[in-house]
């Protein structure tokens, strides 16, 4: 196997870009975590260390447990074994230090965008006057390109706008860690690209930048957004590779997608998936119809 090493070996770094993780402050550490749902093992022995300010893309086929992993990180589920530490403290439940953007249901439908954001602002900064909260909500909406939409309700706007608002809410919550569960998965390609670019821009900014764990099944998306890509295999979900993304600085989407390095990584991830499936076939653990690739 060339290019990407499996987990048992050291993390592969294509160009030796950036310092290694352990030099930076650790934001999140996942230690030997397993998770089962209805007695079915969903995740097995997950180990991850995420540095502050890192953008981690968790990539995997459907059914690999990537959403479960994100829910564990959020504190919405509890692991059956192992532990997860956020800023050194054990995660015991959901908390405003970890903001989450779900696929398409982050907002309360009975509140307009301003009031949805005001809930988050109210938690982030206690004791603000109502008018002040509304003003801040509008500032966050401006930030994600929703100028003048403060009084709209979620049902009045498109899926792309709802996800913008959900991102704004997470930013308004002020969480140092942002967890995103296929947030652009339900969007059309044009809006997906726009929102990816918005996210890149927000994450590079010094004021809004933060640690991000972004779950996706889209290889291009993972490579475009992530500093590091965690590839999950299926049945049960395990980390099958960690890839440091070698593209420096401001990525130009089209140049990037044309580059041979990008193509190579894409092929390698694809090969990893196939290897994982074959391994399971050999083990006789794949029931037909399950474990479909992406």
């Amino acid at each position: 196997m060339s290019g990407i090493n499996s987990l048992s070996e050291s993390t592969f770094d294509v160009n030796g870009r950036k310092g290694s993780v352990d030099i930076k402050r650790i934001a999140l550490s996942v230690e030997q975590v397993s998770f089962a749902y209805d007695a079915v093992l969903v995740l097995k022995d997950i180990n991850l260390t995420i540095a502050e300010g890192e953008f981690i893309a968790v990539l995997g086929p459907s059914g690999c447990g990537k959403t479960s992993l994100l829910r564990l990180l959020a504190g919405l589920e509890k692991p059956v074994s192992g532990k997860i530490l956020h800023q050194g403290a054990l995660i015991t439940g959901p908390n405003i230090t970890r903001g989450v953007v779900f696929q398409d249901y982050s907002l309360f439908p009975w509140l307009n965008l301003q009031d949805n954001l005001a809930l988050a602002i109210n938690k982030a900064r206690k004791g603000l006057a109502r008018a002040e909260r509304k003003k801040i909500a509008e500032e966050y909406l401006d930030l994600v390109g929703l100028q003048g939409m403060a009084l709209k309700h979620p049902y009045e706007i498109s899926g792309g706008m709802r996800q913008r608002a959900a991102i704004a809410r997470s930013l308004a919550l002020g969480s140092p860690l942002l967890l995103m569960d296929e947030p652009f998965g339900a969007l059309d390609p044009v809006n997906r690209v726009r929102l990816q670019d918005l996210l890149v821009q927000l994450c590079r900014s010094t004021t809004t930048g933060r640690t991000v764990v972004f779950v996706t099944h889209d290889v291009e998306e993972a490579l475009y957004l992530g500093d590091r890509v965690i590839v999950l295999g299926t049945t049960p979900g395990r980390v099958i590779a960690e890839i440091k993304v070698p593209f420096e600085g401001q990525r130009q989407r089209y140049d990037l997608f044309q580059s041979s390095e990008f193509r190579k990584l894409e092929e390698q991830i694809s090969a990893l998936y196939h290897e994982d499936i074959e391994r399971q076939l050999e083990a006789g653990s794949v029931v037909s119809g399950e474990g479909a690739l992406i």
């Binding site: 959020a74 919405l76 309360f108």
Partner: peptide, 25 residues
Amino acid sequence: PLHYRDNAGILGFGRFEYMRRVVFP
């Protein structure tokens, strides 16, 4: 719906706030 409960957790709602702002509507 479970996702309302998830959102309430992420926003750090306590029980009363959850009842008033989420369960009631």
